[in-house]
């Protein structure tokens, strides 16, 4: 077993870890109860999974082909930039379309805040909050 084999093994492990994270996040997507909890599963674990896969590809090109791929870094950067924004947009849209929380939920501060706001401003609707 020489050096380059060892490096390729390490890269394979990193990419495998990324795929496992993606798999676990899809399991979470099926099992969790409501939109908001599913958003946790699909947005976060898949971010980490994509990070690992791209990192593995980057290391592979660096060591096997000797070529520094800045494109893969940009990929990581843009996934990190867009993933939280889309998650926030989906959750906010779901909340104001009156998608209910799961019945296990224990707390809802936003609902109280919105009720307080609509009581204070008589002609306001929830979306104005």
């Amino acid at each position: 077993m020489n050096g380059s084999n060892l490096i390729e093994l390490g890269i394979a492990v990193i990419i495998l870890l990324g795929t496992i994270l993606g798999f676990l996040s899809s399991i979470g997507f099926i099992r969790l109860p409501d939109v908001y909890n599913r958003a946790h599963a699909f947005a976060k674990s898949s971010t980490l999974g994509v990070l690992f896969v791209l990192l593995g590809a980057f290391l592979f090109f660096l060591f096997a082909e000797g070529y520094f791929s800045i494109k893969l870094f940009l990929g990581i950067f843009f996934v990190f930039l867009t993933s939280p924004v889309s998650t926030h947009a989906i959750c906010r849209a779901a909340y104001y379309s009156k998608v209910g929380l799961a019945k296990e939920s224990v707390q809802d501060d936003l609902k109280e805040a919105i009720e307080g706001y609509t009581q204070k401003h008589s002609n306001a609707v929830a979306r104005d909050f």
Partner: peptide
């Protein structure tokens, strides 16, 4: 932080019985 809480969420997801108390806090 990303690593630590990822592990926490995945741990909750793959438990045989999902035991979570979700909610919105301020």
């Amino acid at each position: 932080e990303l690593f630590l809480s990822s592990i926490l969420v995945i741990g909750k997801t793959i438990k045989p019985k999902i035991d979570i108390k979700p909610g919105i806090f301020s």
